[in-house]
Design a protein around this nucleic acid. Sequence first.
DNA 1: TAGTGGTCTAGACCACGGT
DNA 2: CCGTGGTCTAGACCACTAA
Lengths: 244, 244
Amino acid sequence: MARFKEIASHIRHLIEQGDYPENSPLPRQADLAKTYQTSRMTIQKALELLRYEGLITSRQGSGSVVRQDARNLAKVDGRIDEYNGLTANNRGIAEVSSKILHFDVRFPTNEEQANLQISDYQPVYDIARLRFVDHEPHVLEYTIMPIHVIPNLKEETLQQSIYDYIENSLQLTIGVATRRIRADKPSATDQAELNCTAADPILEIEQVVYLDDGVPFEFSRSRNRYDNGDILVVNMNRTRKTLD
Amino acid sequence: MARFKEIASHIRHLIEQGDYPENSPLPRQADLAKTYQTSRMTIQKALELLRYEGLITSRQGSGSVVRQDARNLAKVDGRIDEYNGLTANNRGIAEVSSKILHFDVRFPTNEEQANLQISDYQPVYDIARLRFVDHEPHVLEYTIMPIHVIPNLKEETLQQSIYDYIENSLQLTIGVATRRIRADKPSATDQAELNCTAADPILEIEQVVYLDDGVPFEFSRSRNRYDNGDILVVNMNRTRKTLD
DNA sequence: TAGTGGTCTAGACCACGGT
DNA sequence: CCGTGGTCTAGACCACTAA
């Protein structure tokens, strides 16, 4: 792992432990550089990661401070890693299972080709799953993946976690994601599978996920029950995507 | 403005113009460094910005490529800047106006103190506005701002754009934001003000917005009609916030 | 004014991709 | 193999904060 990521992980851990308490300043960048036997640029890249995660804020001339709810955020991130991802629900570790609604291989549509940066003759998996958390239906996931990037996918894998398979069996590293988020009315399928009524909103997330090296491997749309602790924490640098 | 931001803006402009076509490679980082008479590290910071914006992807060993829908994304961002932010709606520039439902000054709650990093005796504005786009109600915004950070706010300013006031009159620069996004059922107020029914979902965005120097200046909650082109494009580095 | 983070340089070495 | 981006160094100067 890159040095700056290791350092970020270590500092994240210290924040989670309370060694760097909330609302108190981090050591100076120069001191951190000495501590970790590295240059200040590397420390800055580590702190930049933590800023993107919302754990700290930095002010020129003043210093870096651990944010108010940083400890919880760090813990949630930790929990997420443990069971391969669940949005923050403050309920500890939960059991995740899947019902496979659809599993097929076919050629990609134009939209899929564009988003996955593949050509029309490179086949993709077409997957639909209903995901359960503690045996309660949580989210409907429609996933498209290029088979040459994620080979040998089987039904057993879909029952568990695809990301586990990618990171552990294929030894690939997940990178960034681009997402579109919107609210929607529930479709007939949503209501039937997610066990909700026409009055229950759906939170839809469409995303393209990349590997660490920039190769897109997933184009998916997930439809979440609105009341499922399906809260997303995001963090971006260009604001002004909303009014004002 | 920092050199790497200028360079990012310039490249963004070239992408928008089509000078760097979609799906075609950018020049090598070394060449860009020569072109802009700067070091490769600075070029990398510029490209990093564009990656976060979703305009390009980079692969070690292979190069950087302009993404499929980069031109549209760049244009949307441009439009956003022009009229101070409107989510992508593919309808060109729209007229934005406001109805002020509430405008007050008071001491902050504990939650507000934590999110805005202020103490209990530092007063805040408490603002509620209904925002119109082309005379159609679009979003209900509840905004809390510390008065010592954003001084002299007046009703006239609220009618227009607070962000215009912050950037032009106060000469401050907007920085990052942390957001929580969720779907919700419409409240009675939502239905009345946004002119929607109980069956129409709400997209709620809670955010803390920071100035460029890390000072938090806005803690707000906005409730959007689900059908208002209220699509958000976000981009993050730590994935796995969803199932899998 | 002293101390902080923000930015930048001009190199260097490495990991990876494609030939 | 060579060319690419990813990372890192050991400094330097500047912008800003706070006393």
